[in-house]
Amino acid sequence: MDRLERYAGGDRLLDAVQRAVRALPLGAGRDALHGRWLGHPLHPILVQVPVGAWTSAALLDLLPGRRRSAGVLVALGLAGAGPAAAAGWVDWAELHRDQQRVGFVHAVANATAVVLYTGSLSARLRGRSLRGKWLGFLGLTVASAGGALGGHLAYRQAAGANHAEQVPHLVGSGWHDLGAVGDFPIGRAVRRVLGDVPVLVVRENEDTVHALAEHCSHLGGPLSEGHLEDGCVRCPWHGSLFRLSDGWNLEGPATAPQPAFEVQLSAGRVRVRLDRPASEQQKNGSPPEKATPLGSSGERRR
């Protein structure tokens, strides 16, 4: 697997396929296939249809008198393979190159399984049940190898994972100072580090400052190097669009929002904190902390 990640011999082919996938006129359907509406990638869910159907068909092929039922399941798996492949390809086009190398072989294995199961179904329809069974068993073997590659892609290479999930676990409770208000020019993205967590800070005007976790939830891209547009920031790596006010992901490929900080301007300083449930704060031994309201002290809140 490690050698496959580093193998650059097929990168020109990968470039061509990536351009072709990105050029598809999918419109809003691209975000739907990414799973932005779902909150996590759609591809792993769609894969359950062909994998489950083909596994069940293999079991029925081992039992007497189940030839017709097994054929129906093979057909169901073939019907579900198309949507699963579509979601997988749009995700693949927005991955790092080492992830794409593994993902491409994963896709080739799955395509080979589809070819074998197509032959299996054809043989069954022509009454050649034994040939259909063996092609099905071979297809399941190849699909299982493709699944192993998919597991490596997801769990070893973290493709599709939320790369900002750890932020609430690394940022301590309460308010944290990020610097003087004057250190943040209006309309510019500034990067600060809060403990071990990089933070994107954008001062919108004299009274409004936004702060988000700086590493993009999609693949960890540096949002401070992204483009600011209409109260949002676009990741420079793969184009995910996040709303500055609350971190909501308005466009994919990111399927998870960015952790957003509450911001307080006090005595010329910028302070931030992550909202935490009262139960979590009490568990940590501290009462829920409230932000200081506007008042005669001159403190201002976002």
Rank of each mutant, 00 (worst) to 15 (best):
R30K: 13
R6N: 12
L62G: 09
L78I: 01
L14T: 12
G39F: 02
Q18M: 09
G82F: 15
G39K: 04
A85S: 10
L38V: 04
A81L: 12
V21C: 05
A75Q: 11
A75R: 12
R3K: 12
L42P: 03
L60Q: 07
G9T: 07
R12H: 09
G82R: 15
E5L: 07
V49F: 05
R19C: 00
A93G: 08
V51R: 06
W37D: 13
D61Y: 11
D11F: 04
A20N: 04
R68M: 03
A93R: 13
G9N: 10
A70E: 12
A20S: 14
A32F: 10
L60W: 07
V47C: 06
A28L: 07
A23G: 13
A79G: 12
G10V: 06
S56D: 00
I45Q: 07
L62E: 02
D31N: 10
H40N: 05
L78G: 01
G39N: 05
L63P: 02
V51Q: 06
M1S: 14
L26A: 06
A32S: 10
P83W: 08
H43I: 02
A8I: 04
P50E: 00
W37P: 00
A28P: 00
G82D: 00
G27R: 07
L4A: 12
G80P: 08
D11P: 02
L46A: 07
W89A: 14
A53R: 05
A23Y: 08
G9Y: 03
L60C: 09
D11L: 04
A79Y: 04
R36Y: 00
W54M: 01
G80W: 10
A23F: 08
L33R: 11
L76W: 11
S56G: 15
A70Q: 13
G77R: 10
Q18N: 11
H43N: 06
L13C: 01
T55Y: 08
R3C: 02
L4H: 07
Q48R: 09
W89S: 10
A23E: 05
G80I: 10
W92N: 03
W37F: 07
L62H: 06
D2V: 15
H43C: 02
R12E: 00
Y7C: 11
Q18G: 08
I45A: 14
L24G: 09
T55L: 15
A81G: 12
V90D: 00
R22Y: 00
L26F: 01
A87E: 07
A20R: 13
A16H: 08
W54C: 04
D61T: 14
A85D: 02
L4N: 07
A84E: 03
R68W: 10
R67M: 01
A75M: 09
L38K: 01
R6L: 12
V21S: 04
L14R: 15
M1V: 15
G88A: 03
W89I: 04
D15V: 10
D61N: 14
E5R: 15
Y7A: 15
G65R: 08
V90W: 01
D91E: 14
